[in-house]
């Protein structure tokens, strides 16, 4: 029988990061991401190759991650909510200087305390939160085993393409403890020193420029690099979608509930299917378009207000008129609930 580990999403993130050759962690406690900081420190006490610092705030955590990766270490942070807001300062630097910053974002509801379970409200911030053009790669995990797998993968993607890379979870996913399959990511990409310590050819990194034209030319190159990675990086999972009349598009924990609702609907002879983007940025527009155009009706379901729907419809505007958008900001969905919401609208 396949070996399973009984772990939480946050434990899976720590184990996955270590399997993905992460060496450094910098962070500040914030619910629901705190156990990644705690778990990493416990691992670092056993393994002297791992280092860490609990910093004074998330700004320092992000900039210390940058310091570590300049030295060639696969470094990362984990945060949420307002910590994620503060983190945009270092992330903007990483975007502009093309640094392989890695962050795990355990989403929570808005800035308040207490609403730390079902939110998908940090999608916009994770994807477009910087003060530049937001050239980032963003994954969204929908199960604990996927948290483990993607926590390895984000390091390789970040170092291979040199764009900041994020993994989104939420409080529900981070804190649930389930039997988990630990699948290895088989194409690890190595890190290397960014500040190369060469006396004759020193590295001078900056994001200040002499003119708008100089900066614009660098941005043009970065945007071209980003566009060329889309087909290699964008991915999605479809479930009973190829012949579906009613296509649900959801990501993360909501997609996990929607998968069960597809079975419930199919049992009552409703031809439903699911399309689940695994990368939020870049979106797998090709697959979304292919399946959504075939469907009679599309349902975009999210635990946020219009964040995910706006991204999907911007990429596939043709489906706008046949799309039903279902929002429950900061609240979760059960499979039965999604099934009855779909039934009501068909």
């Amino acid at each position: 029988m396949e070996k399973l580990s009984y772990i939480t999403g946050n434990e899976a993130a720590v184990l996955g990061a270590i399997e993905g050759d992460a060496e450094s962690f910098f962070g500040y406690p914030i619910t629901p991401a705190t156990e990644i900081l705690e778990g990493w420190i416990r691992k670092a006490e056993e393994n002297k190759n791992l280092n860490y610092l609990q910093t004074e705030d998330e700004i320092a955590a992000g900039f210390a991650v940058i310091g570590a990766l300049l030295a060639g270490k696969k470094a990362f942070t984990a945060t949420a909510g307002i910590g994620h807001v503060l983190m945009q300062d270092p992330i903007s630097m990483a975007e502009n200087e093309r640094l392989p910053f890695v962050g795990i974002i355990a989403q929570r509801g808005g800035p308040s305390t207490g609403t730390v379970i079902y939110s998908q409200q940090e999608l916009n911030l994770a994807s477009y939160g910087g003060n530049g053009d937001g050239l980032r790669i963003v994954y969204s995990a929908s199960s604990v085993s996927e948290v483990y797998y993607l926590s390895q993968k984000v390091f390789s993607i970040a170092w291979k393409y040199r764009f900041p890379t994020f993994l989104l979870t939420d409080g529900y996913l981070a804190k649930q403890r389930v039997n988990t399959k630990l699948e290895k990511y088989l194409k690890p990409f190595p890190s290397s020193k960014i500040l190369r310590e060469m006396k004759d050819k020193p590295t001078h990194l900056r994001n200040c420029y002499g003119s708008e034209i100089e900066f614009a030319n660098i941005l043009k190159r970065n945007i071209a690099d980003y566009k060329s990675l889309i087909n290699k990086v964008a991915e999605s999972e479809s479930y009973k979608a190829s012949d579906s009349k009613y296509l649900i598009i959801a990501h993360g924990s909501v997609a996990s509930a929607a998968k069960d609702s597809v079975d419930i609907l199919r049992n009552s002879n409703v031809k439903a299917g699911l399309l689940r983007p695994i990368t939020i940025r870049p979106l797998d527009s090709r697959n979304i378009r292919r399946l959504a155009l075939k469907a009679e009706k599309v349902f975009i379901i999210e635990s946020a207000f219009e964040q995910f729907a706006r991204m999907i419809i911007f990429k596939v505007p043709e489906i706008a008129n046949k799309t039903v958008k279902i929002y429950k900001p900061a609240e979760g969905f059960t499979p039965d609930e999604i099934a009855s919401l779909v039934n009501e609208k068909i």
């Binding site: 450094s24 210390a64 940058i66 310091g67 570590a68």
Partner: peptide, 8 residues
Amino acid sequence: PVAVGYKL
């Protein structure tokens, strides 16, 4: 903080 992370 960049210097702190780098030195570590």
